[in-house]
C-alpha cells in the first residue's frame, strides 16, 4: 500500500516536472540559477595538482530539474579556464567529482547522505532552504522579504579550502 502510494507520488512528481518543463521557467528558478553560476565564477577553489584536476567544472544538482534547465544557457561557459557541465545527481557516489553541489531537497535522505559524504572536501555546497529550515550548506539560499538572498557559513567554506571573496560576502544576508 505504502509502495503503491510512493509510486503514485513519484509519478506525480515526474509529471509535474514535465509540466514545468513545458511552460516557461519561473523567475525564482532563473534567479537561483544565476546565483549558482555566479558562485561558480566568483568563489575560488583550492589549486589541485594537474592529474587530480577534473577536466570540467561540474555543477551538480540534486532535486531540481528546472534549475538544471535554467542553467542550459550557461553550459560550456568558461569557469576558471574549465567548461561548465551541469549534472543532475541521484546518488552519492558521483558527488565526489562535483565542484559545486546544489541541493534543492536537503531534508531528503539523499541530500543528507551527500552532505555527510563530502564534508570538508573542496566542494561548494549550496542548499535551498525552502521551508525546511535546514541550513547545513556552506551557502544557503533564503527568501527575505520576497527577495532571494543567501547566507554564508564561512568556517565550513574555510575548512573545505574554498575562498569566498569579500565582495561576495558583502552581498550575503548573513555571514556566520
Amino acid at each position: 500500500m505504502k509502495r503503491l502510494f510512493l509510486f503514485i507520488a513519484l509519478n506525480c512528481a515526474i509529471l509535474t516536472q514535465l509540466l514545468a518543463a513545458a511552460v516557461d521557467i519561473d523567475l525564482a528558478t532563473q534567479v537561483k540559477a544565476a546565483y549558482l553560476f555566479n558562485f561558480a565564477r566568483f568563489i575560488e577553489w583550492p589549486k589541485a595538482s594537474a592529474d587530480q584536476q577534473e577536466p570540467a567544472f561540474n555543477l551538480c544538482i540534486i532535486g531540481d530539474n528546472k534549475i538544471a534547465r535554467a542553467l542550459d544557457a550557461a553550459k560550456g561557459k568558461d569557469i576558471a579556464n574549465r567548461p561548465l557541465i551541469v549534472t543532475l545527481l541521484n546518488n552519492a557516489e558521483t558527488a565526489l567529482h562535483c565542484q559545486l553541489i546544489f541541493i534543492a531537497t536537503p531534508a531528503t535522505g539523499l541530500g543528507r547522505a551527500i552532505l555527510n559524504d563530502i564534508k570538508d572536501l573542496p566542494i561548494l555546497t549550496v542548499i535551498d532552504s525552502g521551508n525546511s529550515g535546514v541550513e547545513d550548506g556552506m551557502i544557503t539560499l533564503v527568501l527575505v522579504d520576497g527577495r532571494l538572498r543567501f547566507r554564508v557559513n564561512q568556517p565550513a567554506a574555510q575548512r573545505a579550502g574554498l575562498r569566498i571573496p569579500a565582495q561576495v560576502l558583502k552581498l550575503a544576508e548573513n555571514v556566520s
Partner: peptide, 14 residues
C-alpha cells in the same frame, strides 16, 4: 573590480 560581484549578483544597492 569591487563592483563585479554586485553586478553579477544583480545587487544595485551594493
Amino acid at each position: 573590480e569591487n563592483s563585479k560581484a554586485a553586478l553579477a549578483f544583480n545587487d544595485p544597492a551594493a
